[in-house]
């Protein structure tokens, strides 16, 4: 499977990673090779095999509606790079 340079840019953007232009071609080739390798799986006949999302065999793992855990505000904010007035502080995000 051959990816385009635009595909690589798109994936980088989704991952919020900055990729210098001169690395794009190398990444394109590498990512294509990885996809080709995984594509080997497509040779298998999986007709009639349901998709498998879980191999734990578990179902309906639930809890009751009780409050039994909490982090203090100090604990919650301990590793925050920036904080203000008891809140996490990040670079501006705009909705509009």
């Amino acid at each position: 499977m051959t990816l385009s340079i635009d595909d690589v840019k798109h994936v980088a953007r989704l991952a919020r990673m900055h990729m210098p232009d001169e690395e794009l071609e190398q990444l394109r080739a590498q990512l294509s090779a990885i996809l080709d390798y995984v594509a080997l799986l497509q040779e298998l006949d999986v007709e009639g095999v349901p998709p498998t999302f879980q191999i734990s065999g578990l179902s309906s793992v639930t809890r009751s509606d009780e409050v039994n855990t909490r982090l203090s505000r100090d604990e919650a904010l301990r590793n925050a790079p920036d904080k203000y007035a008891g809140m996490f502080r990040v670079r501006a995000v705009f909705d509009e």
Partner: peptide, 14 residues
């Protein structure tokens, strides 16, 4: 909840 502060940063209450 995001609070947009006047200095251009955003503050977050989880």
């Amino acid at each position: 909840r995001l609070v947009h502060s006047t200095d251009g940063a955003s503050l977050i209450d989880y």
